[in-house]
């Protein structure tokens, strides 16, 4: 990677590492939310598998979702949004950098740091929980490797999708609103609200091929063995294709937004 973009990545990575309390409170929230969700589904489903999705698989799916919440949930770094809204983006313009790549690296740095800070502790605790709450080990070592690949792809996809929030911020000058819209759509279609295997089959036929499910649903289901290795590899290919498409669309959108940008005030 180009040294300058690596520098931006590192800056945001280091910045995120400073916020230890944010990470700790994040871990607590994720942990209790995970417990709540599992109890809820256990109460409703009463040990019967839905769409071939057993209770133990579901618990594992939910714990993975909580452990990697920072990665799968669409956010925009505060700096990126702030700069666009208050006009500091002027300084982004006077650097010899591609602005899309600049923001992409900013967001990637923040996402990776936030994820690394949170996931180990949640997974370690979840692996030792009793009964229905327990998170299970991956079905086999190939599945684990494929899961790791899928999570790396997922982080990139998550960032590529968040670039649409950056675009919307240019249009609306509201960073919170923009991030919320993109995060809501992505959360619903990506399995954050309801695990995708619990959705009606007809809906799944569509959602399975939209980019959002490749962020986290795919690697998690490879991990629990709900998607086999061959099928998983094919899906990973589709995910990579989506990543390329999303980056191209994002770049075009940002370019058009920059053309019409007016920096207000002195």
């Amino acid at each position: 990677m180009n040294k300058s973009y690596l520098g931006i990545f590192k800056m945001e990575f280091k910045g995120e590492l400073q916020y230890r309390n944010k990470a700790i409170s994040g871990i607590f929230t994720q942990f209790f939310w995970g417990l709540l969700q599992i109890y809820l589904y256990v109460a409703f489903l009463n040990d019967t598998p839905v769409n071939g999705f057993s209770i133990s698989q579901m618990a594992t799916y939910i714990w993975l979702g909580q452990a990697f919440f920072a990665m799968r949930f669409i956010t925009m770094p505060k700096r990126t949004g702030d700069n666009i809204v208050n006009g500091n983006v002027s300084y982004n313009f006077v650097r010899p950098l591609d602005l899309y790549n600049n923001w992409f690296c900013e967001n990637l740095g923040q996402k990776i740091a936030a994820t690394l800070l949170r996931f180990p502790l949640i997974i370690v605790i979840a692996l030792f929980l009793p009964g229905n709450l327990k998170m299970y080990a991956p079905v086999n070592i190939t599945a684990l490797l494929l899961t790791i690949l899928g999570i790396i792809l997922g982080i990139c996809l998550s960032v590529a999708i968040s670039m649409f929030a950056v675009y919307l911020t240019f249009k609306t000058l509201s960073q919170k609103g923009s991030a919320t819209i993109v995060a809501t759509i992505s959360g619903l279609l990506g399995g954050i609200v309801i695990p995708l295997p619990l959705m009606p089959q007809s809906l799944q036929n569509v959602i399975n091929y939209l980019p959002f499910r490749f962020i986290s649903d795919l690697p998690f289901r490879i991990y629990i063995g709900n998607i086999g290795i061959t099928e998983g590899l094919i899906f990973l290919g589709i995910g990579i294709a989506w990543l390329i498409v999303l980056i191209i669309i994002g770049k075009l959108l940002i370019k058009s937004a920059l053309k019409n940008t007016v920096i207000q005030g002195g």
Binding site: G7, K10, M11, Q18, Y91, G266
Partner: peptide, 26 residues
């Protein structure tokens, strides 16, 4: 470029880190 009412340096890291990033950028 210096805009007197804005800042080009990074808010929460030492000045030297900002300078080193500018070194990489340019």
């Amino acid at each position: 470029v210096v805009f007197g009412q804005r800042s080009q340096l990074w808010w929460d890291v030492p000045i030297m880190d900002s300078f080193e990033l500018l070194r990489d950028i340019y």
